[in-house]
Design a binder for these strands. Structure first.
Lengths: 129, 129
DNA sequence: CGGAATCCAACGCGATACTG
DNA sequence: CAGTATCGCGTTGGATTCCG
């Protein structure tokens, strides 16, 4: 095990703020939100539909957390019906390639395991394949 | 928002196994474990000391999960006192650069924010800086 | 040393209903 | 449409104790 590359911040140390950031990234919906916002602003409802299984409550909460971390911004358009758009900040955009790589890796592992017969195709994917 | 690059696996879909893998990676201690194992086999106790704040229970559980996901192996040496070593599998090693990048990014953000005065140095780091 | 087992508090998180 | 408020359960996860 190596020494920390950085003498000032080290996620191995319990109270280092970087530990908090890493934890935030790991929270249940964070990575999918970041990837969903990778290509630009997205409305709340569109996010809600894209990220299958997330509740409005958790989506709202996750978005707030990411906003307070400075990773995205929220813009309210005062129209009727309401419109709210979420956009990554430059800091948030830095994360896109890193998290996309993880998501792609995870999907790649699944593809491998399906091909090798280790796991079965979910019915939901039968039509798409 | 783009279409899934992969027609067979897509983490945006609730029951896709890749969603599970992504969730596993995000679990509280997983990323730190992977990074801690980046350079080779490590004993249980060494992991426990390196990853500040993790309980033996959670470390054990996380290691089991990662083993059942095929990302690391556990080897028991029948000595006294007991010795157990954990080692990344090739599949687990694929993750090292991806997760290291995230950890380094998080630490970099903290360093920036400390320099800009946005946050303060934790006493624990005063001596190291 | 490297766990397993038990207990229990905290809270993550979904379901539902309501609002501007 | 984009939330907020409340409820409640299930899981997370730390503390403690015991074991080979």
């Amino acid at each position: 095990m190596q020494e920390p590359e950085n003498p000032v911040a080290d996620a191995f140390v319990a109270h280092c703020p970087s530990r908090g950031l890493l934890t935030r990234i790991g929270e249940k919906w964070t990575m999918l939100i970041i990837v969903a916002l990778a290509e630009g602003s997205v409305r709340f409802g569109a996010l809600h539909r894209r990220i299958e299984g997330v509740s409005k409550k958790m989506l709202t909460q996750s978005l707030k957390n990411l906003e307070s971390d400075g990773l995205l911004t929220r813009k309210l358009y005062d129209e009727m019906p309401l419109r709210v758009e979420y956009t990554l900040t430059p800091k948030g955009e830095e994360l896109v390639p890193l998290i996309t790589a993880l998501k792609t890796w995870a999907e790649g592992v699944v593809v491998e395991r399906v091909r090798s017969g280790e796991i079965k195709l979910d019915p939901a994917f039968q039509e798409a394949g």
